[in-house]
Nucleic acid binder design. Sequence first.
DNA 1: CTCGGCAGAATTTTT
DNA 2: TTCTGCCGAG
Length: 800
Amino acid sequence: MSGYRDPLDEAFGVPSAETAPVPREPPYLAGLNTEQREAVLATDGPVLVLAGAGTGKTRVLTTRLAHILATRRAWPGQILCVTFTNKAAREMKERIGALIGGVVEGMQWLGTFHSIGARMLRRHAELAGLKSNFTILDADDQLRLMKQLIEAEGVDEKRWPARTLASMIDSWKNRGLRPDDISEGEAQGYAFGKGKLLYRQYQERLRALNAADFGDLLLEVLHILKTHPDILADYRDRFRYMLVDEYQDTNVVQYLWLNLLARGSGNVCVVGDDDQSIYGWRGAEVENILRFERDFPGAKVIRLERNYRSTPAILGAASGLIAANKGRLGKTLWTESANDGEKIRVAGVWDAEEEARNVASDAEDLHRQGQLYSQMAVLVRASFQMREFEDRFVTLGLPYRVIGGPRFYERAEIRDALAYLRLVNQPADDLAFERIINTPRRGLGDATLQQLQLHARRANVPLLQAAHALSATEEIKARPRGALRDLVAAFDRWRAQKDTLPHTELAEIVLDESGYTEMWQKDRSADAAGRLENLKELVRSMEEFENLGGFLEHISLVMDTDRGEGAEAVSIMTLHAAKGLEFDTVFLPGWEEGVLPHQRSLDEQGRAGLEEERRLAHVGLTRARRRAKISFVSNRRIHGSWTSSIPSRFLDELPEANVEVTEQKGGFGNYGANYGASRFDTMQSFGSNYATPGWQRAQARKARGFEEDQSDDFDIAHEDAPASAARAKPREAGKRRMPLTIEGELVAKSTGTSSFTPGDRVFHQKFGNGNVTHIDGNKLTIQFDKAGEKRVVDSFVERV
DNA sequence: CTCGGCAGAATTTTT
DNA sequence: TTCTGCCGAG
């Protein structure tokens, strides 16, 4: 017995009583700086860790957790550890595993707010009028549900879009408000006060469907905790230690929920950075972090300011920028480094196409110098900016991947397949039923559905049950009746097989027998093959789960899939998606008024919006380890028409010492050369206010001049023609684009020499099918059926 | 019931 | 520009 040594002790280097009475520092503390160490060791009582970008926040968090475990302050199951994203949760698990050399069992309360909320809600489902196998609805389902209610209420959906109601209800839920809590004034915002009624109806409908939306996962749990002291006491007792990541992103419900629980042990440690709060639009309140000390008097506040990521030049620029924000807790990032590193490069260019060209050629240059593509990222404000980059990268054959594009589980084919599975799992899921009743086409259209709905409402039963009943009566015409009977019989069969067959097998049977797979096999469109592939992938991914229920839970909560991670490719993503990541080189295009301080943010949130935009810019800059390259364009196409844009005000806030303005080869973008009161302001080039008609004319003239260089036959006699946007870019005329790729990522395969000949029929992930018309080395000219003529590198296409 | 054509709006960010 | 939703014809 005495020889027994706990594996945990072993792993952590906790001295055993016999061998080492000498106090020795556990190995996991090695390498931490003073503040980090303090944050790890201050286990008891409230602690606020203000962790600037790149200061080792995750390391502190994981080490702290490991420390709590190692010192036996709590068992894995007694620690509540909340993150904001699934990725962060996953990473945390992995890193704790790495720290103690194995997988930690029993960390069942480590996860995102929503996954933990779902866990709790399933335990107490009946208290919220649900069964524990309730379905978690996604945005799409919610919207459809709301549309039905809006219509039933006789509200004009044109005037009061379902989207508006959805976001309203969402924000109410984010603020912890249930239907009864909505004030009349608040409800006025939608359809003359019908918002409140619709909210209540929506909740009732959810209960009838045995479903919950994302907001409910927290709101309902909060309500249960508030109204059931015994349950609250139980959780308070259970959670000896609480850790919260990204505290600056918490909204009101999350805040209330955390606070309620934290009043138990009082051992709550929140980590965050007010300068990285970028989710205000989703209900996050920076104030939560700003008032932590008031909420928990005597809280220990630890600042992590030593940055291990970026060069002094980058930190200087980022600090200078963020200093313009008011109401910060205030941190100054510093780093130990002999030299400043490369200055931030700022370049003005003509348009987004040129911007993409420059970024791509810079990326190639760096690559030639030995930099990895995987160490480069293009960070944009909004996803519409991604297109130009994708286009350019595709033509060059430069490997890239889009992160956070259309997600796997949001694709139509996946959602259809899931609807089938949901319905097998939970027969009351009317939304799933509505989705698949006529997919594939089986002659069950609107008319039949309405009959079903009528019957279902009268009998107060789910649609599937109504279908069951109606398919046996004469109420429905013969043709649809037969189809309905088949469908109902199929579901009966599948449900019977649910408990006897492995769930992956069941899924295959369902997709097969329903005719869903066949539907895509028959489909001859460009992306049908990809969709079939996705369906296979879906079934494959089910293998990791014990049963159907577990799988469905996972997919509704974990919408992100990190596909292609680690690939040697340039990442393209939004600034939001980039939080928490780092790259050697970061490209920051689109620093223009209206794009980087995004117009909408400014319009809707005023100064608060501007500050959040500035934080977004700050997040972007601090992603860079070695170099950051900012650019802005003077002409941007918005909704199809060309608009002149002016450089972002944030450019002026970058300390001059850290910035280098580069001349562009294009010749039209050298605005930065004119230093003045505002270094980047285009008006300097013209000596007049940019908003005036004169400036606009100047722009137009410039545009025409540009075209003159490009095409000989341009008629410059129209000097005084109105500044037509279309005019400025005649080259664009015939250009057409396909919708975004299904895959959302394209990575060059290393094929040998070109093995194509003109006339070959080929398939391209993005552009679909087409014929090769010309070959030039490894560059093919292809006439695509849908996307028109494109020049593409051969490794991106395959023969069909 | 399905398909095609047309009008009108437009998504910044996501658990 | 591009996508969506609606309407009318087959």
